[in-house]
Design a protein around this nucleic acid. Sequence first.
DNA 1: CGTGATACTGGACAGTGTGTTCATGAATGG
DNA 2: CCATTCATGAACACACTGTCCAGTATCACG
Lengths: 234, 234
Amino acid sequence: MPGARPDRRVRRTRDAIHRALVALMLEKGYDAVTVADIINRADIGRSTFYTHYTDKQHVLYATLDQLATFLRAHSDASGGRLFGFSRALFEHVHEQRDLLRALLGRRGGTVVHTRIRQVLTDLVRHDLEPRTGTNAVVPIDIAVDSVVGAYLALLSRWVDDNEPRPPRDMDLAFRQLIIPGVVASLDLTNPAIGPTTGTGQTKRTAHHTSGTGTSTEITDEQWTEQPGLRRPFL
Amino acid sequence: MPGARPDRRVRRTRDAIHRALVALMLEKGYDAVTVADIINRADIGRSTFYTHYTDKQHVLYATLDQLATFLRAHSDASGGRLFGFSRALFEHVHEQRDLLRALLGRRGGTVVHTRIRQVLTDLVRHDLEPRTGTNAVVPIDIAVDSVVGAYLALLSRWVDDNEPRPPRDMDLAFRQLIIPGVVASLDLTNPAIGPTTGTGQTKRTAHHTSGTGTSTEITDEQWTEQPGLRRPFL
DNA sequence: CGTGATACTGGACAGTGTGTTCATGAATGG
DNA sequence: CCATTCATGAACACACTGTCCAGTATCACG
């Protein structure tokens, strides 16, 4: 049964390995970290490592799965707001800065980006697909890719920033930069970008966004902490 | 003198090494390629490799420098059009698909993305900086990052596509997805997005894009081949 | 064509990292 | 308390790296 709590020694060992990897990634970058490094830092025997993980990568994957779970949970709980994961993820990264910098930042590995890109791509597609209008002028796959690309670029740069801006500002900037083009290109119906006043009003012209007032204003309202999910994923 | 043409043997060797690396990257991905692989494929002696390059990476850098040169040339020659590099790069990649897929695609290395990101970031910043208005609501660095992130995401996915869309469509999609948000967020003056009819008219409101008609319509007009630059960069 | 300069060869070598195996000893939880 | 499970550390085969060197082939140029 997967719910069964493993042996205390196992927990200790896995935890030590995990902590060692994160610390080393912050120091040398993922690529430069060697299994021997991890073993020394975690102060465990060589064979012990290989009974738990096959690889350096394997350790990373274990961590990433938890991040993916966290992401999906927050997306589901976002009340259907467009790009609901965004604010939550910025907030989470803010609180777990060291860990996430190790993963997402300059020194993180390709693996991490690939994996997170997959997860985000799924989330964004589920966000956009049901809202796409009949007059879309850009294939949805392409829209999804560009949204995810832009978001990941912001996030990656942000974690490496020494004096980071508040998560709220990052989320707002992302929305203001990305949403207008997506709305126009996909002929989005009821973007539900800001408050709950979305009236189901449909946009007609794809090229020229004629502002309709408050219902599509890009703000950070409707943001409330989700206590049950705020527990860091690690 | 750097212009002097190197010894024929040197040319032959360097070329063989370069071709071997690209071929192997397409087969196994950059990370999995070993120096021994390159040597075998290029059919040269081990020590020969090390007299020309210090590394696997070194070979890659040599290739990337040429790509960077190509990019800058095309950006300068774009007549000041916003994101002038975009169409040119899509076209170029289209013609050199195999090579560029090796570099930019799924199997390419982190190094490539990092380097190209740098180059594109410079280009985009030089595009946006002089046009930024006084009512910008997003820091220019963040806007640049998101534009580059979105563009690279599109490009990377595109090179791995088996039935790729025409470069023109990709360029258009990129513009339609990205430009509206950037115009609004940076309060861009005279975006010069489409034809030359830009009147220098200044937008006032950052949040609501009230369409002004043809001057900011997003098209692919004003695209002309630049014969002097169409020579592949390799 | 001849010759001095330059480049390629291929094998040997030390160094570093990987992943497996196994006998031994220690901690765990019921 | 004790059967079970886990950790240890050393030894081993393997793969890749980067350097060195003496011998050989190819080049550019007068």
